[in-house]
Design a protein around this nucleic acid. Structure first.
Lengths: 315, 315
DNA sequence: GTGAAAGCGCTAACAG
DNA sequence: CTGTTAGCGCTTTCAC
């Protein structure tokens, strides 16, 4: 009988099933920017683990844009998703309100929000580890580099961690925006060079994430500075590319699999209604400093050799 | 009245709408590996353009795994998707059959299949351009590097393009598998060094895609060889990372936006039923050679300096 | 145990 | 043109 059904090519209609059940067995995944490999990998893991748990996922790229994010949430709600995973959440209050009003469980992964369950790395501790590492190498003039590529709350927390670590060591924090040299304009490159060769010269940059760190390395080398000989750079996230021999980025790595696993755990717990009224829960994971080749002791006498080093040799 | 509806927080139930319409206003997107930024970006563009055209998308990562791919297609079919976009399609016949049996329009983007509409770059022409470039630099011993990271038909076509280009120049093709040194085992690295320093020494590698090219550079440098001084490398795809100053990968770039736009065009055309019985259509786009720093004339006398160059200086 | 019946929230068709 | 009605394909309930 069942074979006959199979043979006839019967396929159950999920639309009808979902309608009568009034829920769709689908998890929504909202991600800010799929082009950032860190998030792409989280999405990939999420999709895999969710389907192992017999859920369908619906991936939405929000481009970090509020309006788009809201529209996507609306779509997910209309489709009666079981729950929503927010990666790189913009922190827009109305979205969370809507989700709450619709009684749809939410988990925020890899960034923080007090209004929802979240799983994230201890950003402040991660930045502290980066500053500590640079400090122990002898660096004193360490700037923090951040920008719009980083989701707001994460940006704030990483900056806070950096600032605290600097003050704890009696150093003065300095904040730079990666957005300035994003397009590699000559003035931006020149002013970057100023920062490293000028009077209060910087010897190290602790970037807010790997993508910014890698672009910064690019800009520094375009300015004729060598990494790590003239200046050290650290990142945050631990994207695969940073491990490439040509890049060798010292970074603070996030445990991606655990982030996803724990996130899904929290979400499924809420979906099953195991803890319906519990206050937002928070899982904090430990990031891990990975030391590679982009950090070294500061130069003893500043040389900033434009004619020296790899850069000059290759271009 | 409409305002009252709004105020009461009415939200239409897409499940019911879809059930009665017997179609879901959703496009399925099947992608082999989201962790490859080339595909992640295509997915991102696809999602954006589809939602601009008022479609929801359902992204599924198949991991290049037949069983997973089949399961995902089954899910999409149960959800009565309007159409399916196949990125990095595994070429599994049964999947296409199922989709056809369910009368669901399909478009294959960035790889080829005669059984469906497709939009792809001319892979053979791209590889020919790479070989031509290397040949004009003076290279004669050029190997093609491919592996499981590349979807099957694409792999075949790029190899064919390479082989033809080599034979046209009276050169003998040589095929290597990137899978060998994927894990960076010492033997693999040693045998790679053999290939470049041994009797029939290779002076250039034309890789099947950028990810493999970049990993190959890593492996070559681990073997104490310099790129491009000792050996040249080319990629295929044009991922952003290849443009980084530290990488500087010469590559054959694919027009991503056009790939997505044209793909969606073909799919929507079929969905609207404009050309219900037309034979599979094929849009072929021109790839573009981007010359950067990973290619140079072959060394005049082989030095293969282990103690020289960036590698030795940095590790 | 098995089988019939009700109805999920919409849309499309049709009657007024 | 507006209002009513049937029914999409399933699950769940309830009667047998």
């Amino acid at each position: 009988m069942l074979e006959a059904i199979e043979a006839l090519g019967y396929r159950p209609n999920a639309l009808a099933r979902d309608l009568v059940r009034r829920r769709s067995n689908t998890l929504g995944v909202l991600v800010g920017d799929l082009a950032n490999t860190f998030y792409a990998e989280l999405v990939k893991l999420m999709e895999l683990q969710a389907s192992d748990a017999a859920f369908t996922t619906m991936v939405c790229n929000t481009n970090g844009n509020f309006a788009l994010e809201r529209a996507r949430v609306e779509t997910l709600l209309e489709r009666a998703v079981l729950g929503v995973v927010l990666l790189q959440f913009s922190g827009d209050r109305t979205v969370l309100e809507e989700l709450r009003a619709a009684r749809v469980p939410v988990v925020v992964v890899s960034c923080s929000d007090e209004r929802a369950d979240c799983v994230a790395v201890d950003d402040a501790a991660g930045m502290r580890a980066a500053v500590e590492h640079l400090h122990s190498l002898g660096h004193r003039a360490i700037a923090h580099v951040t920008g719009h590529l980083l989701e707001e709350t994460t940006r704030a927390e990483r900056f806070a961690g950096y600032e605290r670590a600097m003050r704890d060591r009696g150093l003065s924090p300095r904040l730079l925006s990666a957005d300035d040299w994003e397009h590699g304009s000559p003035e931006a490159i020149r002013s970057l060079r100023e920062l490293v060769t000028g009077p209060d010269r910087l010897t190290a940059f602790a970037a807010g994430n790997d993508v910014m760190a890698i672009r910064l390395m690019d800009a520094l080398e375009a300015a004729g500075l060598r990494v790590p000989e003239d200046v050290s750079v650290t990142g945050f996230d631990g994207i695969e590319l940073g491990a490439h021999s040509r890049i060798g980025l010292t970074t603070v790595s996030q445990p991606r699999v655990e982030l996803v696993t724990r996130g899904l755990e929290l979400l499924l717990d809420r979906i099953r209604g195991d803890s319906p009224t519990a206050a937002p829960r928070r899982v904090t994971l430990a990031p891990q400093l990975v030391v590679r080749d982009s950090t070294a002791p500061p130069p003893t006498r500043p040389s900033h050799g434009r004619a020296l080093g790899r850069q000059a040799g290759r271009e």
